[in-house]
Each structure stands twice: as C-alpha cells, then as structure tokens.
C-alpha cells in the first residue's frame, strides 16, 4: 500500500434546505483499501456516496483526489469535462440497479467497450477482444457478448456492470448496495468475484451497504452513519465484534443469525 492517500475528504456536508444529508464527514482513503459505509435507509450514506462521486454537489467541504500524475485536485474545483473524464476512466460506479449503470438496449460487448471507445479506442477487433476478456473475468460466457443485458439475469447484469466499470483499469470504484435485490446464492458469487477483483487489481473502493455481512466480507475499514453523521469508524472486524457506539451496537445486535 502506498503511503499517500488516494482520496482526502474534509468537512464534507450536504444540506437539503434545513435537513441534513450528511454533516462534517472527514476521512482518507488509500490505494487498495475498501471502505464500507453502513447505516440504515435515510442515514445519509447514499448522499455521502453521491457527494464523493461528483453526482451531487456538497454544500460545504472538499473532496481531493490524487490524479495519475500524483497531483491532488479538488473535485469541485475541476471543470465538469475533467470530472466526467475522471468518472469514466479512473473511477467506476456500480449502481444497485444494473439498469441504472448499463445501456439495456445495446449488446454486452458494447456495454463493456463503451468506455474504451469514449477514450478514443478505434479498433473494433481490439475493443471486442478486450470486452471478451472482461466478460470472462466476470464469469459471463463469451457467446453472450452480442446479447443485450435485457436477456440477462439480475446477477449477470450486475457482473456485466462491474466489467463495464473496470475495463479502463480504474483506481477507485464506488458501489451502492452492489448485492441489493439479489438472491443469496447470487450474492455470494458476486461478493466473491468482487473480493477477487478488488484484491487482484489493487482497487480502492467505497461500498455503501446496509448489509453488515457484505461489509464484513468486502471491506477493510468501516464507517457507521446515523442521521447524517459518522457515529463510529474503525477496522471492519473491530467495529462488528466490539462495537462502541450505542447505534452500532444496535445495528450489530440486529443481525439475523443463520
């Protein structure tokens, strides 16, 4: 792991009028590190994710990202063109609902290849070869490359979305409830796949989830949010095995045991 963080978040707040989305969030994220943000619906975790991923402008505070040239840039002082370029090259965003992150009416191959074409790849054969390779890595058979995601199951769609995001070798990936709405067996496969990809590629990731089992399996570090505030942070297993904050204890004690 590098000694310089990839992302520096300082005093980040988002207000919706007088309501708090998230308030005074600060943390740093290092390359290769997976951070889980947990909390129940309305805790502000999705607001935070959107503020980090430049999908929602924060009210105050800053988010600095270390570009590939080593320079830190404040995301909200960049031009929109730069931000969007970052989003589709150095970053990925995996939506809970794959339909939000995929083009449902173009083929799987084109879904994966789109980012390559967006950064100027103009060789059909190479784009297709890369797409085939990535479909394999997310365990989608090569002969499905010309099928539209409409014809895919929920789990396959989610894996396709992951391939689409990772094809440009991003360094940071945001995930919003990546296993939400999937069957348990499908979840397990996806989690295993994500775990493998994240460690093989040395990806940094911020995963928003309400599922503590997902957080335990994927993340190194955890932030617990309640009412827009971070109530506890720490090593994932420490937070789950020895929760300190009253709310975290409530969350952990609410897990159903199988």
């Amino acid at each position: 792991m590098s000694d310089i963080p990839l992302l520096k978040v300082k005093a980040l707040s988002k207000f919706y009028g007088s309501r708090i989305g998230c308030q005074n969030v600060a943390f740093e994220l290092w390359p290769g590190e997976v951070l889980a943000v947990v909390g129940e619906s309305g805790s502000g975790k999705t607001t935070l994710l959107d503020c980090l991923a430049t999908r929602l402008a924060p009210s105050t505070g800053s988010v600095e990202y270390r570009m590939r040239d080593g320079q830190f840039r404040d995301l909200y002082r960049m031009s929109e063109a730069e931000r969007r370029f970052l989003m589709r090259t150095d970053w990925g965003f995996v939506h809970q609902n794959p339909a939000d992150g995929l083009r449902m009416s173009v083929s799987a191959g084109a879904n994966v290849g789109e980012r390559l074409m967006a950064v100027g790849d103009r060789h059909y054969g190479k784009i297709r070869a890369t797409a085939t390779d990535w479909l394999g890595r997310v365990e989608i058979a090569a002969d499905r490359i010309d099928d539209q995601p409409r014809a895919f199951s929920g789990g396959m769609r989610q894996r396709l979305q992951i391939a689409r995001n990772l094809v440009t070798n991003p360094r940071l990936i945001f995930m919003d409830e990546p296993t939400g709405g999937l069957d348990v067996s499908v979840q397990a496969r996806l989690l295993d796949l994500l775990r493998g990809l994240v460690s093989d590629l040395g990806l940094a990731a911020i995963v928003v989830t309400h599922d503590l089992a997902v957080a335990r399996l994927l993340s190194h570090r955890m932030m617990v949010m309640k009412d827009g505030h971070i109530v506890e942070t720490g090593l994932t297993d420490r937070v789950l095995d020895d929760p300190q904050a009253p709310y975290t204890q409530l969350l952990v004690s609410s897990i159903l045991q199988v």
């Binding site: 969007r84 083009r103 173009v106 083929s107 084109a110 074409m117 103009r122 784009i127 297709r128 010309d146």
Partner: peptide, 18 residues
C-alpha cells in the same frame, strides 16, 4: 459540449457485431 462521443462508436460497434 464536453465532446463525449464514445456513444456514437457504440452504435457503429453494434452494427459490426450484428
């Protein structure tokens, strides 16, 4: 405005794939 034209090639890609 941002000269993001990757999508145009997606259409051509689909043509060739099909």
């Amino acid at each position: 405005a941002l000269e993001e034209y990757g999508l145009m090639h997606v259409k051509l890609y689909e043509d060739i794939a099909r």
